[in-house]
Amino acid sequence: MARAVRRAVSAAVTLGLVTLVVFALGASLPGSAEEDDERARPLPPDYRAAVRAQFHLDAPWHVRYVRWVADLARGDLGISLREKRPVAAIIRERLPVSLALNALALTAIVGLSVPIGIAGAWRPSSRTDRILALTTTAIYAVPVFWAALLLQWLFSVRLGWLPLFGSGGVAHLVLPVACLTYGGLAYVSRFVRTAIVEGTTGEGGRVARARGVGPVRFLVAHGIPQAAIPLLTLAGFLVPRLVGGSLLIEEIFGLPGLGSLMFQSVLARDLPVVLALTLLSGAATLIAMTGADALAAWVDPRSRRVA
């Protein structure tokens, strides 16, 4: 329990640090919120003063940071400078798209990688193993936006089976999910394979073989459990992608998710939105990493001792 509290405190410290840096960077930039408005038309001085007062722009940045944290504690993420409405509402609109896209991709990655990993580990260094490794690493090197272009051209322009762009139904997600999936295959399947081979070539594995355990039972009872822990840790690293990892794909396929929101907000210097997304993605990362650690400790008591 003390361990969990320590982790939570350190995670909070990390998040504070990250948002502080983002805040300082954002505040150090030239230009400000009301100047963007001014580009369209000159602002009356009293209106300008009102805007500066509303966003507390005359206070030094560290005072504004403290104010931001205080607002956050009350559940208020502020108002987007670009869209002039609550940040929370914008994120709530876009979260489902990113979540659906990345959850599907994560499921596909794990669902495909585990069988590929098992197939490779069945006979290490066999022809199957080598061909699988070669194909997945080759696919991994295909740039994702190039693959997106190719898939769009083939399935949308040429064959007309799937929509080219935008969001709507499940059909709109097929190509983006495919693009997000193939890159992870090489990495995760190799991971699974290595873990299984590690489990089956060790002492315990050899003893089991000598005792006459058949190949299928051997794999199921000795190999796959070994892969569970590394896979959990890896999943912990993959989960953060659920929030903002699909920036390129969302931009290419015109999906209104959090990745494209972050992209547009960074370009527009919309600090409240950038801060909120930073916090969200940071929190997801830390929770996933901590959660994976805790699950691993639960699955395998040995890892509890390793600090």
Binding site: S10, L17, P240, L247, L248, F263, V266
Partner: peptide, 24 residues
């Protein structure tokens, strides 16, 4: 370790993008 964790909180591409887009 805290700093490493802090950096890992961002998708890598995003941080680079932010640094380039708003270049100090």
């Amino acid at each position: 370790s805290r700093v490493i964790e802090a950096v890992l909180c961002f998708p890598a591409l995003l941080l680079a993008l932010a640094l380039l887009a708003v270049a100090p």
